[in-house]
């Protein structure tokens, strides 16, 4: 088993066809789901009739601002962890020099990279945040009450992707095994996004934009 995990053939499969499958599924299914959401929401006559970009954008701004909303201020630790976690989660994979190099090798294009030290710190932040979220799910009663197996599952996907990435980068134990596992988990994460509640990375803009418009346009109050 370990032999297979560390094998070059698995590496080739994960870097080659599986990588294509993961990215295509991620993009195509995400776009499909966004279109589906747009359609099903427009069938409900009361949604887009009230959506106003000016209110939606204002609301995004405050909810994307650390301590920007009252609820963020009421939960400072959650606020700090969730911001650091999400920023790292999005920017490290995109701007990591090793990832960039792979794309450069394949297509001859590359973009900005972040220093490996910073990426390392961000990865540790993601790993610690995962423990923080896990702790919330176990020890905070109102979170524990609404936690399902699927919540641990999506947390585990993120956790193992970053953990194996960290171990592979530092070449702890067997580099090849962790590299393969890292790619595998990364691909599982990409594929999971459109099919699990990880889709909140896109649907956030729908739900927040809509309620912001209801509050700003109809209710004439801020929603943060």
């Amino acid at each position: 088993m370990l032999e297979l995990l560390g094998s070059d053939s698995l590496y080739k499969f994960l870097r080659g066809p599986m990588c294509w499958v993961a990215f295509i599924l991620f993009f195509v299914c995400s776009i499909y789901k966004i279109i589906r959401y747009t359609k099903q929401l427009s069938q409900e006559k009361v949604v887009f009739a009230y959506v106003k970009p000016q209110y939606a954008l204002k609301s995004y701004f405050y909810w994307f601002l650390p301590f920007g909303t009252r609820n963020w201020r009421l939960h400072p630790y959650m606020n700090i962890f969730t911001f650091l976690f999400h920023i790292s989660l999005i920017f490290v994979p995109i701007f990591l020099s090793a990832h960039n190099l792979l794309i450069y090798e394949s297509w001859g294009i590359s973009w900005w990279t972040i220093p490996d030290k910073l990426a390392d710190i961000a990865t540790i932040i993601v790993i610690i945040s995962c423990f923080f979220f896990l702790g919330r799910r176990i020890f905070i009663k109102e979170v524990n009450y609404v936690t399902y197996l699927s919540d641990y599952f999506i947390l585990a996907i993120v956790f193992f992707t970053f953990l194996t990435g960290f171990l592979a980068y530092h070449q702890i134990y067997t580099y090849k095994i962790f590299l393969n596992l890292h790619i595998l988990f990364g691909e599982i994460m990409l594929i999971s996004i459109p099919f699990t509640r990880l889709f909140h990375m896109w649907s956030f803009f729908f739900t927040r934009g809509y309620i912001a418009s209801e509050f700003g346009y109809v209710r004439k109050v801020k929603d943060w």
């Binding site: 099903q40 919540d151 509640r197 729908f206 739900t207």
Partner: peptide, 21 residues
């Protein structure tokens, strides 16, 4: 399984941050 409901059910990340509200 359609409309807002579907979006809401599949977006909620079960964070419990609404509790204190």
């Amino acid at each position: 399984k359609k409309g807002r409901f579907d979006v809401y059910v599949n977006t909620c990340i079960h964070c419990g941050l609404c509790s204190d509200a």
